[in-house]
Simulated scan of single mutants.
Amino acid sequence: MSLLSDVPTDTDLQVLADALGVQLRATHQRLVTAESCTGGWIAKVATDIAGSSDWFDCGIVAYSYEAKQALLGVRPQTLEIHGAVSRETAMEMVSGALITAGASLAVAVTGIAGPGGGSEDKPVGTVWVAWKRRGGYARAEVFHFAGDREAVRRQTVAKALIGVRDMLTA
């Protein structure tokens, strides 16, 4: 990422996506995204890469509770008890993405990009990212990003892509 800022530039995101695409293509794997707070930005960055149809399966944008339930199989109880911005929801989103798509890897993001919507427990900039490999490996991590709405979303896209890359090299 840029040395001038913690917030990745468009070029930074494209470099990450391009490198990830090379790795996915080389290992004959495909990616699905399940996105809330990024609104499809991870899928956009991926599909900006020429030839991404070799390694990108699909992107699911599920912003509302209803969409998370209908498109990704997030249980109503999970949303009631833990809320949309939680480890539990992110893990159900990433699992649901793999059920919905034919991909071998998935990433899911859910968070509070701001400027409103935060609370004492979940301030603006709180984002959960989950990654899962078909048939096993899954993990989720919470991030607390600084900056305005765009900065939070850019940082989320970068962390999501980096996490998929790390999954491929683990």
Rank of each mutant, 00 (worst) to 15 (best):
H144D: 10
A113G: 04
H82D: 02
E80K: 11
D148F: 08
L4W: 15
G59M: 02
Y137N: 15
A26L: 09
E80Y: 01
W131H: 13
L98M: 04
G125N: 08
F145C: 09
A19L: 13
T78N: 00
D166S: 14
T89A: 14
V164K: 14
I60W: 01
C37I: 05
R133I: 13
A26K: 12
G96W: 08
G114L: 07
G83S: 04
R149T: 04
S119T: 15
R149G: 03
D6P: 14
H82T: 00
F56E: 00
E88A: 15
T126H: 11
F56M: 04
V152M: 08
S95T: 14
K122C: 10
E35Q: 07
V157L: 10
A138E: 15
I81N: 08
V7I: 14
S2Y: 08
V61H: 00
E141D: 14
A70S: 11
V129Y: 06
P115W: 07
G21W: 11
V7F: 08
R149N: 05
R25A: 15
I49L: 06
A170C: 12
V74M: 05
L71F: 07
E80P: 00
Y137A: 15
G39W: 09
P123T: 10
W131L: 10
V85S: 02
G102W: 01
V152P: 07
G135E: 05
W131C: 12
D6G: 13
L168Y: 08
M167F: 06
